[in-house]
């Protein structure tokens, strides 16, 4: 018998109601990176815009950083942790296959028994999390949902790889998505291009250390087996990012019915200043649009980069609550997600 099923009753719309960030205490300047690669401060700055990044210490674990950032986001939203009904953690640097780290983070935050899970969509993952959170709030399965982007990419960095050693950083950023009477999150333009899945990837799978051909495993100068790292084909990624992602960003604006003239803030994934500059040009963003350039002092923190940049723009007064912001994440997969949101 097909019974009549009562659907959930969600909020009419969703919005970002709070944001928080955590940056590890140790600041790593380009000089330190140069100990391991043949390069220069000038080259790194001119090709990436990066001057410093933060690398986490032993105590600054994925969970610790996530709880710090999420606690601030919850407070910023004016909520108590028990009111959180969903915890989505976007990360590639949690090294235990199971359980998801989201449950531990939810518990440490003092949330009750929220739905809690991890997602893996590389540098696009924050946008993926936002999209899921919006759906949960408007469909009625949670009233307030935390979306946390957290990375310790220093653990996945081969400091001797010239094409990545200077790029990555660590940190956590979080937002709360909650109910709204007004539309405050546009449609997500998201997707993936799996034909390019090898362009950014982990050097060896974890099970390579168990069953793999030992000759294929990364070995250091001392002959010791090394941890896997993220490797990439820089030019291919750059080409895809500047050419394809500007189109996706434009589609997100169109889908939200927002023109560049109506935009206040642009928060692209903080991968490389050159990608950011190129997108600003291609999108013909007017002068008045504030552009997040957090990559200079934060490096590329993958899933954490957008909420970290958002938090900094608001904290420094470069952006204000109620501003209209275009956000776009893109990276490994290759996956991407863009949307227009009202800032908390």
């Amino acid at each position: 018998m097909t019974s009549k099923i009562k659907p959930g009753k969600g909020a009419p719309y969703a919005r970002i109601t709070g944001v928080g960030g955590y940056r590890p205490t140790r600041v790593v300047p380009n000089e330190e990176i140069l100990k391991h690669i043949d390069s220069s401060d000038e080259w790194i700055r001119s090709r990436s815009g990066i001057a410093t990044r933060h690398w986490a210490g032993p105590e600054e674990t994925v969970a610790v950083m996530a709880v710090e950032a999420a606690g601030k986001a919850i407070a910023d939203a004016g909520l108590d942790p028990e009111q959180i009904g969903g915890v989505i953690v976007a990360t590639v640097s949690h090294f235990k296959q199971t359980p998801a780290i989201a449950t531990e983070i939810a518990h440490k935050l003092g949330a009750g028994k929220p739905a809690a899970f991890d997602i893996n969509a590389g540098c696009a993952a924050f946008g993926y999390g936002l999209t899921l959170a919006k759906g949960m709030v408007t469909e009625g399965s949670a009233e307030h949902v935390l979306v946390i982007g957290v990375e310790r990419l220093s653990d996945l960095t081969d400091v001797t790889d010239r094409s990545t050693a200077f790029l990555f950083g660590d940190g956590a950023g979080a937002v709360v998505v909650g109910p709204s009477q007004e539309p405050a999150m546009g449609p997500s333009v998201w997707g993936s291009e799996g034909d390019k899945s090898d362009v950014i990837s982990q050097t060896v799978p974890w099970d390579g250390y168990r069953v793999g051909d030992v000759g294929q495993l990364p070995v250091g100068a001392d002959g010791e087996l090394k941890f896997p790292a993220i490797r990439q084909e820089g030019q291919a990624v750059f080409r895809w990012a500047v050419f394809e992602m500007a189109k996706v960003a434009q589609q997100a604006l169109d889908a939200a019915g927002v023109s560049p003239a109506d935009l206040d803030v642009f928060i692209p994934h903080q991968a490389n200043m050159r990608i950011i500059d190129s997108m600003v040009k291609t999108l013909k963003l007017p002068e008045h649009v504030t552009v997040a350039r957090d990559v200079e002092t934060t490096g590329n923190t993958s899933a954490a980069s957008i909420p970290l940049a958002m938090e900094r723009l608001l904290a420094t007064g470069q952006a204000k609550s109620g501003d209209t912001a275009l956000v776009i994440g893109f990276g490994a997969g290759l996956a991407y997600a863009a949307t227009v949101v009202t800032l908390p």
């Binding site: 030019q235 080409r239 050419f243």
Partner: peptide, 11 residues
């Protein structure tokens, strides 16, 4: 035109 600008020129 450095290597990254070259990618933009090519595109």
């Amino acid at each position: 035109v450095d290597s990254l600008s070259m990618v933009e020129v090519v595109v």
